[in-house]
């Protein structure tokens, strides 16, 4: 989609999502499901900056999510500071932490599978550290204070609708950041880096700086979202926030969605997470544990038959529609 066609499509897209609560008749359960989809959508879209556009397989999404959740959560528990502020503090700490780690990693040329594995190891290291660090974490869930008189200050609403719209705002911001980045100078540097690091370097791109920038943006968004995630769960626990499988799922959704696009990960998250939650609701009580199998099979089939990702389907449909419309852009193929 070209920049000039982006704005109307984006507005339609926002309106459709924003009206979901109306479509489902304000049914709390369906709004909860939609919120879960949005949560995956936000993190996967943020992941896309690093994983999709810059082509660095990052498996540490929940490390930054967890840091954000723990910072915002503990600020609320200890000093009664609203998560709206805690979110930004969490984002800054998560991004600072990620940049410090990233600086060392990129300095020593850790890349490809070793980058993936060390970010995954990072999640597990943080989980164990917060499990042992009794003041802020520990093996017991720490519940966030709630308030009936001032739900906004504590971000503890009685309904899922506010959570849904906060997540939606996050998604819009993340999506716009992705889109802006994708067509900016640094975005093109990232794309070059993603397709061939040596070639990018030989063309004068400072790959270490570019990677660090990508990591910073990604961890900042995910860290800020961690504060929301803590309030959404209404408790913080190392296994929930520093969850290795969650981080892996994010990366899988990003890969399945199609690398190097800005909308692919969101597409994959909305289709596959809806499928997963639907399967959980339908089969969860009949055959215990069958929904991950179907989810796993869906991923396998997509990789085998649509290796370029789900976004390619959307792209083809879009190109066909343009051709049918017979406009002057009709024959251009663009991503």
């Amino acid at each position: 989609m070209k920049p000039r066609q982006f704005v109307p499509a984006f507005i339609v897209f926002v309106l459709i999502i924003a009206l979901i609560p109306v479509f489902v008749g304000f049914n709390e359960y369906f709004i909860l499901l939609a919120t879960v989809v949005l949560i995956y959508g936000v993190i996967t879209t943020a992941w896309n900056v690093m994983g999709g556009i810059a082509g660095q397989l990052d498996l540490g999404a929940t490390a930054y999510l967890g840091i954000g959740a723990y910072v915002a959560g503990n600020m609320l528990i200890w000093w009664n500071i609203t998560p709206w502020i805690g979110m930004f503090v969490g984002a800054i700490i998560a991004a600072g932490f990620a940049s410090a780690i990233g600086y060392v990693m990129f300095r020593y040329g850790v890349k490809e599978i070793w980058y993936a594995l060390s970010t995954l190891g990072l999640v597990e290291v943080l989980r164990v550290i917060f499990m042992l660090w009794k003041e802020v974490g520990g093996p017991l869930e720490k519940y966030l204070p709630r308030s009936k008189t001032d739900p906004f200050y504590y971000m503890s609403f009685g309904s899922y609708i506010p959570y849904f719209y906060i997540a939606l705002i996050f998604l819009l911001i993340t999506f716009l950041v992705n889109y802006r980045l994708r067509y900016s100078k640094i975005g093109y540097s990232m794309l070059a880096l993603g397709s061939n690091e040596d070639a990018a370097e030989s063309l004068g791109i400072d790959t270490r700086r570019t990677k660090l920038k990508g990591l910073f943006i990604y961890s900042f968004i995910v860290g800020a979202f961690g504060g929301f995630y803590a309030c959404f769960c209404s408790f913080i626990h190392p296994n929930t926030d520093f969850n290795m499988n969650f981080a892996l799922e994010i990366a899988v959704l990003g890969i399945v969605g199609g690398l190097g696009t800005y909308y692919g990960p969101l597409l994959a998250a909305s289709i596959l997470v809806s499928l997963k939650e639907y399967l959980r609701a339908v089969f969860g009580t009949i055959v215990l544990g069958i929904y991950p199998a179907i989810f796993g099979l869906a991923i396998i089939l997509i990789i085998l038959f649509k290796p370029e990702g789900l976004s390619s389907i959307l792209k083809n449909v879009y190109i066909k529609l343009r051709k049918g419309g017979g406009t002057k852009h009709g024959r251009q193929q663009h991503s």
């Binding site: 599978i113 890969i255 215990l288 069958i290 989810f295 396998i300």
Partner: peptide, 27 residues
């Protein structure tokens, strides 16, 4: 064999296999 040379696809593929195995063991 169909995804040789695309390491990211292989990672996603193996994670899909992993999910199927976890599920199978539970069932």
């Amino acid at each position: 064999n169909r995804t040789m040379g695309t390491p990211l696809s292989q990672i996603a593929l193996m994670l899909g296999v992993a999910m199927v195995i976890r599920s199978f063991v539970q069932i």
